[in-house]
Design a protein around this nucleic acid. Structure first.
Length: 503
RNA sequence: CGGGGCGUGGCGCAGUUUGGCUAGCGCGCUUGACUGGGGGUCAAGAGGUCGCAGGUUCAAGUCCUGUCGCCCCGACCA
């Protein structure tokens, strides 16, 4: 057998490695529908974990869930001028509402709609239209609503989880009485995303505003969290937009303030998507496949019974069930430990490797020898696939949560160290060119990384780095009290921006 | 949408240049035996009409036209 479960390995062909990891872990696959993927049970279970945690965080910050239509009248998208520019293309449009049987047995669309309906690429306009009706008084504010939904963006080059024509996400939409309150909300949700990414996904992120060229169409300010993938590229993992009064003015979201004077609301929107699954894959997985942070792993401990005879099977399974019960009573991250017994009748080696490739944090083998010794054999996903440590059964139960915590921390630390190792501070355009053009070192998929550089928010900067396919990802909010002069325009800037290639 | 490549059992491929009998191979799958903390061994099976549509021909996986989809590069990516 090859040295690694995944072929090619990361350093050979990173994009192909990614696809093979997705496949080996049985997360998703292409559907017969152009650009649309099928999220398979294991992939969906990961999304459900993300939903559960995020939903709890949204509720804790005062938000409620609601649901708005999939279809948006074409005229709604025309309301906000900048929004129109950004969304004019890449939308799916419904023009008919009926199918009739043609003479050749084919179905023909008929019943042309008076106004075409656009399948939502995002919901600012339809939600804003409702907010305009709901908000009348300052007493109606703030409106704090989140929607879990699917959206469609007719992307030309889809990639599983990273960019598909249809994807799942959540979109929060809020309306406030004051600018400060809306800005505060924008940053609060950015923090929620950053906390979720770092604590639950074990994925270090930089958070900060995007340059004007990368803003959401119609936004006054767009903030993002940016993570570094194992090939050194940046992935925008979440965005939070301060929309100012742009949408409120376009859609008439108005209220009477406490002095009886009519004012426009200040609105925000923020979202993360199933793209986060792609982010987790590219942050943590190795040449043996998926590696899941315990907090989002659908199964944290997989029990693997080993037996030959029926008597052994009975005894081993009984032990597994008891262990399952005891572990389920233990807690990790405020929840019962998620444990499963894999009692399928198949070859042991295949079974073990399947769980390696699926990223299960802890594998526990229990056989007659362990039974006799009152022990279990424990393997960690963050160690070599063949490593096993014997441990007294009682000790394992007591320490399981600690082991999961250790894996979770270790994954974050490793990802952070990787990002730091591939982050540099540069002081000239020549240095930037050299950094991004330097070929990858042997055995590494990394070309470039994050360059922290003084640049102004200016088209000249964009043009300068365009040939390198490098863009300004964001201007980090934290640890960035470092004024200087733009290396392209010579203008003074208050801090460094992060330059990187991105997904 | 522009340039390039590709579509043959579940997966990976050969066959297409020079059309010709029942379309092959590896892996996987099923069954049995041997095994048994091993991505095991051996044997016997099942499974495809060659992306789709049309055309040329006595004959098409193989030639022609169209179309759909996938991959890479570019543009796009809220």
């Amino acid at each position: 057998m090859p040295d690694h479960a995944i072929s090619p390995i990361r350093s050979q062909d990173y994009p192909e490695w990614y696809q093979q990891v997705v496949r080996a872990a049985d997360l998703a696959e292409q559907s017969p529908v152009r650009g649309c993927m099928v999220i398979k049970p294991h992939g969906y279970a990961i999304w459900e974990r993300m939903q559960t945690i995020l939903d709890r965080m949204f509720k804790a910050t005062g938000h409620q869930n609601a649901y708005f239509p999939l279809f948006i009248p074409l005229s709604y998208l025309e309301q906000e001028a900048k929004h129109v520019e950004g969304f004019a293309k890449e939308c799916a449009v419904v023009t008919h509402h009926r199918l009739e049987l043609g003479p050749d047995g084919k179905l023909i669309p008929t019943g042309k709609l008076e106004e075409p309906l656009v399948v939502r690429p995002t919901s600012e306009t339809i939600i804003g239209a409702m907010y305009a009706k709901w908000v009348q008084s300052w007493r109606d504010l703030p409106v704090l609503i989140n929607q879990w939904a699917n959206v469609v963006r007719w992307e030309m080059r889809p990639r599983l989880f990273l960019r598909t024509a249809e994807f799942l996400w959540q979109e929060g939409h809020t309306a406030h009485a004051t600018r400060d309150e809306a800005v505060e909300e924008t940053l609060r949700m950015l923090d929620v995303y950053a906390t979720f990414a770092e604590r639950d996904l074990a994925m270090p992120v930089l958070k900060g505003p995007k340059p004007s060229g990368e803003r959401f169409p119609g936004a006054v300010d767009t903030f993002s969290i940016e993570a570094m993938m194992q090939d050194g590229k940046a992935l925008q993992a979440g965005t939070s937009h301060f929309l100012g009064q742009n949408f409120a003015q376009a859609q008439g979201i108005k209220f009477s303030n406490s002095s009886g004077v009519e004012e426009f609301c200040w609105t925000t929107s923020w979202g993360v998507s199933t793209r986060l699954i792609g982010a987790v894959i590219m942050t943590h997985s190795d040449d043996d496949g998926l590696c899941l942070p315990p907090r989002i792993a659908p199964t944290q401990v997989m029990l693997l019974p080993i037996h030959r005879t029926d008597e052994e099977r009975t005894a081993v399974l009984a032990c597994c069930r008891q262990l399952e019960a005891e572990l389920s009573n233990a807690r990790f991250g405020d929840e019962p430990i998620r444990v499963r017994i894999d009692a399928r009748d198949m070859r042991g080696g295949d079974k073990v490797w399947q769980h390696v490739k699926q990223g299960v944090p802890l594998r526990v083998e229990i056989g007659p020898r362990d039974l006799a010794a009152g022990a279990v054999s424990v393997s960690r996903r963050d160690r070599g696939p063949r490593e096993r440590a014997a441990m007294p059964l009682g000790q394992f139960v007591a320490e399981a949560a600690g082991l999961l915590d250790d894996i979770q921390r270790g994954m974050f630390d490793r990802a952070k160290a990787f990002r730091d190792q591939h982050s540099v501070r540069l002081g000239s355009t020549a240095e930037v060119v050299e950094f991004f053009e330097r070929p990858a070192e042997k055995g590494s998929p990394v070309q470039g990384g994050f360059a922290h550089v003084h640049v102004a928010d200016d088209p000249a900067v964009t043009a300068m780095f365009d040939p390198l396919k490098v863009t300004v990802r964001c201007i980090p909010l934290e640890g960035n009290d470092d004024p200087g002069t733009c290396i392209v325009t010579g203008r003074p800037v208050t801090g460094r921006s992060v330059l990187a290639r991105s997904y």
